[in-house]
Design a protein around this nucleic acid. Structure first.
Lengths: 296, 296
DNA sequence: GGTGTCCATCAACTTTTCTGATCGAGGGGT
DNA sequence: ACCCCTCGATCAGAAAAGTTGATGGACACC
C-alpha cells in the first residue's frame, strides 16, 4: 500500500464512533473478522497503534488520525459527487440548502420562476446551520447552498474549505445590532462594535456570528455570551432579544419590523452581512437555472 | 468500490500530467496494461469518461476531478505523515521551512539554543514561497513552518487549508510601504492603503501580498502590478523599489536600513505583518524544542 | 503503403481481502 | 467462586481485485 486506504479509514472512524469492532462490522456490512483485520492493516501501514481494545477507544495517534479522516472522507465523497453530477442525466430535482437568514423574498421570486420553467420538478428547500452547508454542497446532498454570514466588505465569507466549490455573492446587507426596545442605543445612527464588547450577548451559532467571530472582527476581547441559542429560527431569537436576554448581530433587513426589538447599524469596523451562493458542478436543469437567476 | 480509490487517482493525475499512459506506467512502475485498466476502473466507478485518448487529455469531467485529486492526495499523505511522526522514533533532524521575511534575528537566537541542546542534530533551514509551506508542513517535508503574511490585527493569516495544523503567532510587525528615496510620501507618519491604489506596484507573490490581497484589504480596485518579481529574496526587490519600478508592502523591520529606499507606515486599514508557526504533530527532539522556544 | 507507437483487451497468475470457524480474555450474574 | 456470554484476535480457505505479458486495432509519421 502506498497511500492510506480510505476504506480502512472509514472503518476506523466507524469503530471509534461506535466503540466496538462488532457493531462497526454490522453497520458496514462486514464480518467482525474483516474489521479486525482492516484495523490491524491500518495500524501496520501507519506504524502506530490507533485503538486501545477493551475498552475500545482511540489512542493518541488514533485521535490525531481522526482529525484527518473526517475531512478526507468528505472530500473523497465530494470528488465522486462532483464528477457524477457533471456526467449524470439532467436532474429533475432541486435541493436547495440555505441558512435561515438567506431565505428571503428574492429567493422566493427566483424559485417561482424555476417552478414556472420546470412545472414537474421536485423542489426541496432545506434550512440548515451554516457549518454543515459547504460539506453538503460538496457531497451533493444539496445542489445549491445559500449561505449568509459576516465579513469585511471585500473579503469572502470565511467558509471551511471542503473542496473546489464555486462561490458568488448574491446579496449584501448592512449589519445591525438587535436591541430590546427602549435600550439607550436604540435608534442611534451608528454604533462601534467594540463599544458593545461588554454587553450581554446571545450566542446563536446556527444563525449568526459567534462570539469568537465578533472578537476577531472588533479586535477586542469580550463578547461573553450570556445565553446560548441552538436553533435556526430568527423569531425565537428576537423574542429573547426583546425580553432583554442579550444582544445579537443581524442583517438590517431581518430587523425591520420585529415587535419589541429596536436596532442600530454597526458603523465600525466596516462589516457587511453577505449571502453567497455556493455549489460544485451543476446538473443541467432547475439547479442551473436557479443559480443563473440568483447570480444576475 | 465504495470510495474513490486514491491509487487510481494518483495514476490519473500522472497520466494527465505526462499526457501518456505508457509514460505514466513507466514513472509509476506499472505496466501500461495496468494503467489502462486503472483508468478504465476509475471511469467505470465514477460513471464518466475522464480522458480523451489520442491525444491523451482530460475531458470536462476529468478536469473537474483533477481539481479534487491534488488536494486529496496531499491530505492523504498528510494524514500518514502526521501519525507517523507521532509514533516514530524521536528525530535527530530538524527541517525548518520558512518564508524569507520570517527569517530574522529572533529565529537565529532560537536556533542557537537548539544547536546547544542538540549538538549532533542536523539542522536544515529551507526558504520557500508562502504558497507551498502549509502543504509541506502537513506532509512532513518540513517539521516546522514559519510563514509570514498580511492580516487584520486579530485574524489569522489566510492560509490554504491542507489539514489539521497547529498555528501560533510568533511575531507581529507594523506594515509599511517601500518607496524610492525622495518619493513624496517618504517619511510620512501614516498612509492609507486605498490612496496607493493608483500607484505602480511590484508584485512579488513569493515574498509579499499579491495585488489581489491588497485589493481585498483596501476595499478598492486598482493595485495593478507593473512588474512581476519571482523569487524569495528581499534584496533584489528593494533594489527595484529604489530604482522606481514600483511600490511594495513589507514589514517595517525589513525596511529599516535599505539603501535608497524610504518607507511610510500603513495607517488604514489596520493591518499587521504577522509571522506564524505552523506544524502538525511534532516529533520529540529539536523540532519540539524550537517550537517551544519560538512560542514563548 | 509501410512502420512504429500507442492504448485496449484478454487470459493467466499473484496478491489482497473477506468469510467462517475457533480461541483466549474479561465482565457480569448467580 | 464459578459459569456464561460477549468481545476481539487469529487462522485457513475462498473470493475478489489487481497485475503481468501477449496480442490486436487505430492512428500518425515517414
Amino acid at each position: 500500500m502506498d497511500t492510506v486506504d480510505p476504506q480502512h479509514l472509514r472503518t476506523f472512524v466507524t469503530v471509534t464512533r461506535l466503540g466496538s469492532f462488532s457493531e462497526a462490522a454490522r453497520e458496514l456490512g462486514y464480518t467482525q473478522s474483516a474489521v479486525s483485520q482492516q484495523i490491524a492493516a491500518l495500524e501496520a501501514d501507519l506504524g502506530a497503534g490507533l485503538l486501545n481494545r477493551r475498552p475500545v477507544g482511540p489512542t493518541e495517534a488514533g485521535r490525531r488520525l481522526l482529525e484527518h479522516a473526517a475531512p478526507l472522507l468528505v472530500r473523497l465523497e465530494a470528488a465522486r459527487a462532483d464528477v457524477a453530477r457533471l456526467a449524470g442525466a439532467p436532474s429533475t430535482r432541486l435541493v436547495l440548502g440555505a441558512t435561515p437568514l438567506a431565505v428571503g423574498p428574492e429567493l422566493g421570486r427566483a424559485l417561482g420562476e424555476v417552478r414556472r420553467a420546470y412545472p414537474a420538478a421536485e423542489l426541496v428547500v432545506r434550512v440548515l446551520a451554516q457549518g454543515v452547508l459547504p460539506a453538503q454542497a460538496a457531497t451533493g446532498e444539496v445542489d445549491l447552498a445559500l449561505i449568509d454570514g459576516l465579513a469585511a466588505p471585500s473579503d469572502p465569507l470565511p467558509l471551511p474549505d471542503v473542496g473546489p466549490l464555486a462561490t458568488r455573492a448574491v446579496d449584501e446587507q448592512p449589519v445591525a445590532v438587535a436591541l430590546p426596545a427602549g435600550h439607550p442605543l436604540a435608534g442611534r445612527s451608528g454604533v462601534a462594535l467594540a463599544d458593545l464588547s461588554a454587553a450581554r450577548w446571545l450566542d446563536a451559532p446556527d444563525l449568526t456570528p459567534t462570539a469568537a467571530r465578533l472578537r476577531a472582527a472588533a479586535g477586542v476581547d469580550g463578547f461573553r455570551p450570556a445565553t446560548r441559542y441552538r436553533g435556526t429560527d430568527v423569531h425565537g431569537l428576537l423574542a429573547l432579544v426583546a425580553t432583554g436576554h442579550g444582544l445579537t448581530l443581524l442583517p438590517a433587513s431581518a430587523l425591520a419590523d420585529a415587535p419589541g426589538v429596536a436596532s442600530a447599524p454597526i458603523a465600525a469596523p466596516r462589516l457587511v452581512h453577505r449571502t453567497e451562493l455556493v455549489h460544485g458542478s451543476l446538473p443541467e436543469g432547475p439547479a442551473a437555472l436557479l443559480a443563473r437567476l440568483l447570480g444576475a
